[in-house]
Simulated scan of single mutants.
Amino acid sequence: MAFNPLRERGIPLDKQVRDWRELNVMPIDPDHSDPYTRCRIITMNGIEVEAIFFGHQLARHCPSVELKQQLARVRYIEAQQQKAVNWLLPGLASVLETTIAYEQVAVDLTAWVARMEPDPYLRQAYEFGVLEDFDHLYRYANLYEMIEHRKAEKIVDALTEVMPGRPTYLHHRDPMDNVREPYDRNSAAPISKLHALTIMSAEQQTMNFYMNVGPTYMEPIARQLYQEIGMVEEEHVTHYESLVDPGESWWEMLLNHEYNECYLYHSFMETESDPKVKSIWELHLNMELEHLRLAAELFKKHDGRDPEQVLAPELPAPVTFEPNKGFLRDLLATQIDYTTLGTGYVQDAHERFQRMQEAVMGGERPPSEQVIEDNQHKSGEEYRLETDGPHPVPSLRLHR
């Protein structure tokens, strides 16, 4: 049945504040929960963090004290939602285990979005990025085996394969080549706007996470690997945020943010296997319906348009976490040797790319390569999880 969040009534804002007991949610069991439940939690944490960050930026550009106060009330609820969502993660999990789950999100969420994206240019952006997150998962899985003596299959549960993608050392590009062309806000499909916000938010949270947890390790190779991949995540946020049309007004951006939260909470409520977690998705959806209503009123008042002019008349098909093994193997076979040039893509190294490689590498072997060699030496072989047999290794032209 069609669900139009603009026509649904949510919980009144003054009824949404929760006390500490209500926020003290029961975390999931890392040994018995569906790995995709953890992926949904990580995704919604990133979405809520983006909602909070965006709300603060909007407030900093808003001259009206009354508007700042209204935004602050909604933002406080978003902050409570973020705490409830993120605190669903188990304290038993190590930082590295959570990292591997973050990369599983990046792989399977981005792959799903790429498969569903109707715009060829935007789809290429997701296909390009996912091969790099796929390689990050492989590097962290080898670090995990080496320093915690455990295998990543316990975390990803064979839903996501672990094998080399586009090698991480090839992800270091001139910053100007990380900027893409934005969608056109007047002609882009509503789902394209939601996709861009979703992946931007997820990658931003991954960047934030690595920025903060990287130096908490004592092992030099762990600190170095988080530092290297953390810099790639900065590139990825640039890559994805540039897809959003900067011509959208603040009020249109707010409207899109709130609609996207409704879309994702509804999606995960429909697909969640854990009843306790599902109840949180349902509660937050009912909160977000009111946030959307308030954003729609601000949009009508300050933008002078009707929300139906820019939003989908009903929610698209639910965002679904599912295996994407065949899709990823096809990309590995056809796009592993891509890099970027300007706002497009090429298959050969170019002068700016080579200059950046020389500047970043400094003649040294990068941590992302060293971690594989170190694990081979310590464990006897590198770690891979290939559930459908070995994948063919295409030739790489970028390093020539």
Rank of each mutant, 00 (worst) to 15 (best):
R7W: 08
I11F: 00
D14E: 13
Q16N: 08
Q16M: 11
V25R: 15
D34M: 03
T37H: 09
C62Q: 14
P63Y: 07
Q69M: 06
Q70P: 02
Q70D: 14
Q70S: 13
A79P: 11
Q80P: 09
V85A: 09
N86G: 14
V95F: 10
A125L: 03
Y126G: 07
F128C: 00
L143D: 09
A152D: 11
V162D: 01
H172E: 03
R173A: 01
R173N: 00
P175Y: 06
M176S: 13
D177I: 07
N178D: 03
E181C: 06
P182F: 11
Y183V: 12
R185T: 08
S187E: 08
A189F: 08
I191Y: 01
K193G: 06
L194H: 10
L197G: 13
N208K: 15
F209C: 08
N212H: 10
P215M: 11
T216C: 13
R223S: 02
L225Y: 05
T238N: 01
E241H: 14
S242Y: 00
D245G: 09
P246D: 01
S249E: 04
N256M: 12
E258W: 10
E272M: 12
F299C: 11
D303V: 11
Q309T: 13
V310S: 07
A312E: 05
P316H: 01
V319P: 00
A333Q: 07
D337T: 15
Q347L: 07
H350C: 11
E351V: 13
E369I: 02
Q370V: 06
E373W: 14
N375R: 11
E381V: 05
E382S: 13
G389H: 06
P394L: 09
